[in-house]
């Protein structure tokens, strides 16, 4: 089974976001960048399927030269090959078009994604890639089986669950619950440092999205902090009913 896993490079979840001088992106000084947490599940799932069915796992990212660090993380986990499509700060559409082009130039049975990239949280790249390649697509998969080219998958939806059946070749995005990603071991991390990473020129495609400005939200909160006496609890109920009017 030939598997492509697409990964994105994102600020660590604990990052305190500040706006850069351009007023439309985040200041990246002192920000630690990591492999998108959902993509760890995708890499792990690729590796497990390879272990069961044979084949190879290629990891791909669209980004600047600095994105090689997350490819090395995936190589240390056990990916066979890594490729970087060099395009600085692409929008999601450019990412999808480039991934689709790479997939057309190779032949993959399965293209795996994380459910969302925790920078722009759009959930959009996997379905776009599926549509560009005219492939079936399952998103936000939390459990599945892949046997003899048949895929049975389960996912949560609002207020319930759905089960699907489909066939390879397939585009899928996965989420927490599908597996426990392995931690790369030190010797593998060292070995990954000298593995080759293929660099690819991007497809010329215009971004769709133009960011005009970025700001840190300032939500006004009331900050009424009470104690735990019976009177305080009654006060809280009164405030919720009469001031906030939510109960």
């Amino acid at each position: 089974m030939n598997i492509l896993v697409c990964v994105s490079r994102v600020p660590d979840t604990a990052t305190k976001v500040k706006v850069a001088d351009d007023g439309k992106s985040i200041a990246t000084q002192n920000v630690k960048f990591i492999l998108n947490p959902y993509d760890e599940f995708a890499v792990e799932e690729g590796l497990r399927l390879r272990e069961q069915h044979g084949g190879s796992v290629t990891v791909l990212t669209v980004g600047g030269q600095e994105s090689t660090d997350i490819l090395r993380t995936a190589l240390a986990m056990g990916a066979d090959k890594a490729a970087l499509i060099q395009l600085v700060n692409p929008d999601s559409y450019q990412v999808a078009v480039n991934i689709a082009q790479y997939a057309r130039n190779h032949s993959f049975d399965l293209i795996l994604f994380g459910r969302q990239s925790i920078d722009f949280d759009s959930f959009q790249v996997p379905p776009m890639v599926a549509q560009l390649l005219d492939l079936p697509c399952l998103t936000i998969v939390s459990q599945w089986s892949v046997t003899n080219g048949t895929v049975k998958a389960e996912r949560d939806i609002e207020g319930g669950k759905e089960e699907f059946e489909t066939a390879l070749p397939l585009v899928a995005s996965v989420q927490k619950g599908i597996n426990e990603p392995r931690y790369p071991k030190l010797p593998d991390i060292i070995k990954a440092k000298s593995k080759p990473i293929e660099t690819i020129e991007p497809v010329a495609v215009e971004p769709q999205l133009e960011i005009l400005s970025m700001e840190i939200p300032q939500t006004e909160r009331r900050h009424v902090i009470l104690g735990d006496s019976d009177e305080d609890l009654e006060k809280l109920i009164q405030l919720l009913r009469e001031e906030a009017k939510v109960i």
Partner: peptide, 19 residues
């Protein structure tokens, strides 16, 4: 012009679609 939260709501962008 669309307003959309990014970075898990730690920031909000204003953006246009050029299409």
């Amino acid at each position: 012009i669309f307003r959309k939260p990014v970075y898990a709501g730690k920031a909000i962008i204003a953006a246009q679609l050029k299409t």
